[in-house]
Computed example of a mutant assay.
Amino acid sequence: MHPRLLKTFLAVARSRNITRAAEVVHLAQSSVSDQILALEAELGAALFTRAKSGLELTPAGLALQPIAEDLLRLDGEARAAVQAAAGSTSGHLTIGALETIASARLAPWLPGFQAGHPDITVRMKVAGSGALLRQLEDGDIDVAFCFDRRDFAKGASDKHFARRTIAAEPLVLVAAPGQGSVPGDLAALGELQFVATEPGCIYRHMFDTAFAEAGAAAPRLANEVGSIGAIARLVAAGAGLALVPRLAVPDALARGDIVEMRWPGQMRTAPLVMIWRRRRVQLPALKQLLTAARDTLVPALQPAKAGSGLESSNRSKALFAKNS
């Protein structure tokens, strides 16, 4: 069974749809159908059956699915072992990231990494946290850069993924210029209007968690929007307050479109992590990228200013030491 056929089979099994699977594996729908037929002919059994809700795995398909996942993992490990034994440091890597991390952290950093590692070709994909983890599971990306969340699924995922926290990104309370002071406690702050991303987004998770952990009621939302950029513009227009990672709004803060306000209580941070698949032998190119990202991706944070909410560089270093 060729790995290409197994990858297509898994894409169909997970999406239960030929069209969506074709988008995942970057093939025409007809090619996906042909590959499934070829795999069924090789194995002598039907792998899918049609249902009202989409394609469903037959008993033969259900039996093949975990084995196909193991075979693709072994295929990747075999390639990594051969490259390591041959002393090769070249290769192609695909990294995935949230849009804010890609623009604020990876875009300034990648040219320097590639200048120092000209034999490594890097591609970057931008997606949400859930999509990044699915792409990592499917082998479409080699490493994901995102914000960690405490309710991340444990169990099987922990067996497949390794992760490292590389920074504690400060969360900031932002408002329109001229907003004036904000209440000194979260209960009163929660009575004001806020702008936040939609449920399911990592930034919404940060927002909800900040109030829930303090035992405060969730604030009223003036708007739910799909991007941090839209949040910054709405806040600047006076729609409400927002709680966002500072790295997502540096330009708006620098221009004075929005201003940072004091957050009542303990300072909030968002762990910036890189996640990759566990392998007995890791791709040499990926090892170099992980090492470089750990050492140079996030600049040291400046010492905290009174009322600014900035974390000290010592805290960032201590967090990394704890999670490395």
Score class of each variant (00 low, 15 high):
E69H: 06
L171P: 04
H2A: 07
K52S: 12
L171I: 04
D158I: 01
A176D: 08
G215M: 11
F147N: 03
G226L: 12
G240M: 06
E56G: 08
R279F: 03
S312N: 10
A292F: 00
D251W: 09
A306M: 08
G238V: 09
A28W: 02
L221N: 11
Q65T: 13
L57Q: 13
A218W: 15
A188P: 09
R163M: 11
F211L: 09
L37H: 13
L64V: 13
F48Q: 09
A84E: 14
A237H: 12
H205E: 07
A248E: 02
I166M: 06
I231V: 15
I166S: 00
V244W: 00
S316E: 06
L241V: 11
T49S: 14
M206Y: 15
A63Y: 08
F147V: 06
D148T: 02
I67L: 15
A292D: 09
G309Q: 07
L283G: 04
L301G: 01
H2Q: 09
Q193V: 05
L241K: 10
F161P: 04
F152V: 12
Q288A: 13
V122E: 03
A78V: 12
A115F: 15
E137P: 02
G61P: 13
S324T: 01
P177T: 03
F113E: 03
I95S: 01
G190W: 10
A156Q: 06
G178M: 07
A216H: 05
L72Q: 11
L289Y: 03
L64Q: 11
R262A: 09
G307M: 01
R280Q: 09
T165Y: 01
T49F: 15
G87I: 00
M1V: 09
